[in-house]
Deep mutational scan, measured.
Amino acid sequence: MLDDRARMEAAKKEKVEQILAEFQLQEEDLKKVMRRMQKEMDRGLRLETHEEASVKMLPTYVRSTPEGSEVGDFLSLDLGGTNFRVMLVKVGEGEEGQWSVKTKHQMYSIPEDAMTGTAEMLFDYISECISDFLDKHQMKHKKLPLGFTFSFPVRHEDIDKGILLNWTKGFKASGAEGNNVVGLLRDAIKRRGDFEMDVVAMVNDTVATMISCYYEDHQCEVGMIVGTGCNACYMEEMQNVELVEGDEGRMCVNTEWGAFGDSGELDEFLLEYDRLVDESSANPGQQLYEKLIGGKYMGELVRLVLLRLVDENLLFHGEASEQLRTRGAFETRFVSQVESDTGDRKQIYNILSTLGLRPSTTDCDIVRRACESVSTRAAHMCSAGLAGVINRMRESRSEDVMRITVGVDGSVYKLHPSFKERFHASVRRLTPSCEITFIESEEGSGRGAALVSAVACKKACMLGQ
């Protein structure tokens, strides 16, 4: 009897593995994704193909990295998701002549009506938060230079001027797309009239992360975010950046690689679950690469896999709870928690219980395998993109072996128990001629924006502006 049951459990697990095998990517698959990513990057950089390229390769006008001589107080704003952060950054000489960066910050959550109302409502709310922060720190009387981390696709015309191309991540505030974001912020500050600010720089969160990590390690020339969304930036040779005049030196390019796949480059790798996630998203047909990796989508992918296993009578005796059938019910943090389970399955059992399920031991094991399959594919897909960037940098610099540091931020990278190990191992397999160091950014977005502002202020002083 026991043997029969054991055989049935083994057969069930084997069927589960057959279904989950769809998520496995072979090294040849990853090399294919990497080569296609490089081709799209090239198209994004070139003037004649930029418009139709899915990977936009947006110039950021960040050319210099901090040298350690900029000092002063800077205000930093960070808008990239449902939370908005205001930070005071003091850049100065530390002990023994070292450079020191001290920060104080406060988080504000953005109400739904500000995210989806008008641009005026959104930026009025942001300036209200700045006003509140300055009151708390008794700094209303000071006109501070301000660095703005704005983590949406922007076409820069200068370091302090950028046109919002399109909202992502659930934002829909009308009247912002096609307009200068810094102008919208300046107008809102003017409307309030109770404080003055000098907006000197606007950067993407990947750029802010790279600059913040450069402060720790001067070989950091790539910034990457794996959180709600997924994106990367890197220092490109100016001669390859056709959208900006000049051939000397390097400029940081914001790849906006989340949109890779929007022209069909990933079609052969998309599964039924991916198509369902895409169809029910706020932007169907867009940001397809990001939807395979980002935390906004990972939990939902797992939920759809679990429903398939229920329908195949391989999980929960073929019956799903009402909660499990509800879109968004299986949160991405559950994926991390399930994979963090120590082996007694308590954590998995508790999560499934909150979803109205009474799982068996085998159910718990199957749910864990589903989570591992989805998150491992995410790590491997992400590795193909980064390997594409790094191999490109090595080739354009004609280096036999390139040493490089990548600064990384984002909740999936930082909080998932195995993502970074799987990701690092896969990147290294795909970049055999590179020695890569990964560092995690601390308060990256805010500190990085302030350091970019410090560079901009120093330049302005040198130019006598």
Rank of each mutant, 00 (worst) to 15 (best):
Gly295Trp: 14
Lys169Asp: 13
Val406Glu: 00
Gly385Leu: 13
Glu157Cys: 15
Gly446Ser: 15
Arg345Met: 10
Ala6Asn: 15
Gly175Tyr: 05
Leu45Ile: 04
Tyr61Ser: 12
Asn204Trp: 09
Leu45Arg: 03
Val199Phe: 06
Arg429Tyr: 10
Glu399Gly: 08
Cys213Ile: 14
Ala188Met: 03
Leu463Thr: 10
Asp217Trp: 01
Leu276Trp: 15
Asp132Phe: 08
Leu430Pro: 01
Gln38Leu: 07
Leu134Pro: 00
Glu242Asn: 02
Ser426Val: 08
Asp278Leu: 02
Val253Ile: 10
Gly249Thr: 02
Asp311Ala: 11
Val367Asn: 00
Glu272Ala: 06
Glu312Thr: 05
Leu307Ser: 08
Glu265Phe: 09
Met235Ala: 01
Arg333Met: 12
Asp73Arg: 03
Gly147Glu: 05
Ala173Phe: 12
Asp124Lys: 01
Gly193Lys: 08
Ser375Gln: 08
Ala21Pro: 00
Leu430Asp: 01
Gly264Trp: 01
Asp205Ser: 06
Gly356Ala: 05
Arg191Asp: 05
Ser174His: 10
Gly249Ala: 00
Val89Ile: 14
Leu304Ile: 06
Arg325Glu: 13
Glu331Thr: 11
Thr342Leu: 06
Gln138Tyr: 05
Met210Leu: 07
Ser174Tyr: 14
Glu248Thr: 10
Arg191Trp: 02
Val16Ile: 11
Arg250Asp: 00
Thr376Trp: 11
Gln219Arg: 08
Arg308Leu: 02
Val33Asn: 00
Ser398Glu: 14
Lys90Trp: 08
Met197Lys: 08
Arg397Val: 03
Gln26Phe: 09
Ala450Gly: 12
Leu355Cys: 04
Val86Gln: 06
Leu20Tyr: 10
Lys90Ala: 09
Glu331Ser: 13
Glu40Asn: 05
Arg192Met: 05
Gly117His: 09
Thr342Phe: 08
Tyr349Lys: 07
Met210Ala: 01
Glu93Ser: 12
Gly258Asp: 09
Asp4Phe: 07
Ser426Tyr: 01
Asp365Lys: 04
Trp99Asp: 06
Thr362Glu: 12
Thr118Ser: 08
Glu40Pro: 00
Leu292His: 12
Thr361Ile: 05
Lys90Phe: 08
Asp205Ala: 10
Lys346Glu: 11
Met57Thr: 00
Ile189Met: 13
Met41Arg: 01
Thr405Ser: 09
Gln219Met: 03
Lys414Cys: 07
Arg191Gln: 04
Glu331Arg: 14
Val389Arg: 01
Arg358Asn: 12
Gly97Tyr: 05
Glu272Arg: 10
Gly246Gln: 13
Pro66Tyr: 11
Cys230Ala: 12
Phe123Tyr: 09
Val62Ser: 02
Thr60Cys: 14
Asp78Ser: 13
Arg250Asn: 09
Ile159Asp: 15
Ile404Asp: 01
Gly407Leu: 01
Gly162Pro: 14
Phe74Thr: 12
Phe316Arg: 00
Trp99Thr: 12
Thr168Ala: 12
Ala6Glu: 14
Lys31Gln: 10
Glu177Ser: 08
Gly94Asn: 03
His50Ile: 12
Leu164Ser: 15
Lys458Ile: 03
Phe316Ser: 06
Ser396Ala: 11
Gln106Ser: 11
Glu331Ala: 07
Glu331Val: 13
Asp73Ile: 01
Glu95Phe: 11
Glu421Tyr: 12
Glu312Asn: 14
Gly44Ile: 02
Thr118Tyr: 04
Leu314Ala: 07
Ser109His: 09
Glu248Cys: 09
Ser373Gln: 05
Ile404Met: 09
Leu164Asn: 15
Lys296Trp: 12
Ser151Ala: 13
Leu77Gln: 01
Glu265Val: 08
Glu70Leu: 02
Asp311Ser: 10
Asp135Gln: 15
Ser109Cys: 09
His105Met: 01
Gln287Val: 09
Leu451Val: 10
Gly175Trp: 04
Ser280Val: 15
Glu28Thr: 02
Pro111Asn: 14
Tyr234Asp: 01
Tyr108Asp: 01
Glu268Thr: 14
Lys104Asp: 10
Ser426Ala: 14
Asp29Leu: 05
Ala449Cys: 15
Ala21Ser: 07
Ile436Lys: 02
Ser353Glu: 15
Val16Asp: 03
Lys39Ala: 11
Arg394Gly: 09
Glu265Gly: 08
Asp124Cys: 05
Ala454Gly: 10
Met462Gln: 10
Thr60Gly: 03
Pro59Asn: 00
Pro284Asp: 01
Tyr215Met: 11
Val427Arg: 00
Val154Met: 13
Met235Glu: 04
Val86Leu: 10
Glu177Trp: 12
Glu22Pro: 15
Ile19His: 06
Pro111Met: 06
Asp365Phe: 12
Leu276Thr: 07
Arg186Ile: 04
Thr437Pro: 00
Leu415Trp: 08
Arg250Val: 06
Ala384Phe: 05
Glu17Cys: 06
Gln219Cys: 15
Pro153His: 06
Ala259His: 06
Glu22Asn: 10
Gly183Thr: 08
Arg192Asp: 02
His424Leu: 03
Arg85Asp: 15
Thr332His: 08
Asn83Ser: 06
Ala208Thr: 07
Asn313Gln: 15
Ser383Arg: 01
Ala232Pro: 03
Val91Glu: 07
Thr60Met: 07
Arg5Met: 11
Val452Tyr: 15
Leu307His: 04
Gln286His: 14
Ala379Ile: 07
Glu51Arg: 15
Arg377Ser: 00
Arg428Val: 14
Tyr289His: 06
Arg368Gln: 12
Leu292Ile: 15
Arg43Asn: 11
Pro111Arg: 10
Thr405Arg: 08
Lys13Arg: 13
Gln347Asp: 13
Leu386Thr: 14
Glu52Tyr: 10
Asn180Thr: 10
Val374Leu: 06
Glu265Lys: 04
Glu196Ala: 08
Thr228Pro: 13
Asp3Thr: 02
His141Phe: 07
Glu96Ser: 14
Pro66Phe: 05
Arg397Pro: 01
Gly183Arg: 09
Ala387His: 00
Leu314Cys: 10
Glu14Arg: 05
Ser336Phe: 12
Ser411Asp: 14
Arg394Ile: 03
Ala201Glu: 05
Gln465Ile: 08
Val277Asn: 10
Gly264Asp: 09
Gln24Glu: 14
Arg303Gln: 07
Pro59His: 06
Ser396Lys: 15
Glu128Met: 14
Met115Leu: 14
Val199Trp: 09
Gly162Met: 04
Met57Arg: 01
Gly258His: 01
Gln219Ala: 06
Arg447Glu: 13
Gly294Met: 08
Leu309Ser: 00
Ser411Lys: 04
Val302Gly: 02
Lys459Phe: 10
Phe260Ser: 00
Asp311Ile: 02
Val16Thr: 02
Leu451Lys: 04
Lys143His: 09
Ser54Ile: 05
Lys190Tyr: 08
Tyr61Phe: 15
Arg368Gly: 08
Glu443Lys: 00
Phe148Ile: 08
Arg428Asn: 10
Tyr234Trp: 01
Arg250Tyr: 15
Leu47Asp: 15
Lys13Cys: 11
Val71Ala: 13
Tyr108Gly: 02
Leu304Arg: 08
Arg397Thr: 08
Ser340Ile: 12
Cys364Ala: 09
Ser360Ile: 05
Lys12Trp: 13
Val71Asp: 01
Phe334Thr: 11
Leu146Glu: 04
Val277Tyr: 10
Glu128Leu: 08
Ile439Pro: 00
Pro417Thr: 04
Val302His: 00
Asn179Thr: 12
Thr49Ala: 04
Ala10Leu: 12
Val181Glu: 06
